[in-house]
């Protein structure tokens, strides 16, 4: 498969989960495992441009497909606008949920470029944050969309 525009290939057992493939075979540790049971969204990555929970996808299902992780967003030293907005709005505290949250938020704006606050909240319902109370996360996503400062 291609991860962040780099070809990665390995022989894996069919039961290998995509999140383990990303963290162990590709050595990209930005994608976190929270609940390991499809609930928390910490493991969210993009599969062919859409957000998915990589703890609930088999690595073989992503064979020959394109995966993007949090490491694939920044262009050198230049952060992705969503990362920039999260920083600006203090949209993280411990940061554990952040990679998944950012990936989910980018996929959301691909589908709804100018969301309302409610649409942001609904669009991020698959991502749990135990620290921030979500307020600043929603603010960051709205800022990144240009809907509100």
């Amino acid at each position: 498969m291609t991860i962040n525009d780099t070809e990665v290939s390995a022989d894996v057992e069919p039961r290998t989960l995509l999140v383990h493939f990303i963290r162990e075979q590709a050595s990209l540790k930005g994608t976190n495992i929270g609940c390991d049971s499809s609930s928390c969204g910490a493991c969210t990555v993009h599969l062919n441009g859409e957000s998915v929970k990589s703890c609930t996808v088999l690595a073989v299902q992503a064979d020959e497909q394109e995966v993007t992780t949090i490491e694939g967003l920044a262009d050198g030293e230049t952060l992705h606008p969503m990362q920039e907005a999260f920083r600006d709005c203090h949209a993280l505290q411990c940061g554990y949920c952040t990679p998944g949250m950012v990936m989910a938020a980018i996929s959301l704006l691909d589908e709804i470029p100018k969301p309302t606050e409610l649409e942001v909240r609904e669009g991020l319902e698959g991502n749990l944050c135990r620290c921030t109370g979500y307020h600043n996360i929603v603010k960051a996503v709205l800022q990144a969309s240009g809907s509100e400062s």
């Binding site: 499809s38 599969l47 859409e50 609930t56 996808v57 989910a104 589908e111 669009g123 698959g126």
Partner: peptide, 9 residues
């Protein structure tokens, strides 16, 4: 159904 990630798959 579930959340956007679930509905993508």
């Amino acid at each position: 159904v579930g959340d956007p990630q679930v509905r993508h798959r």
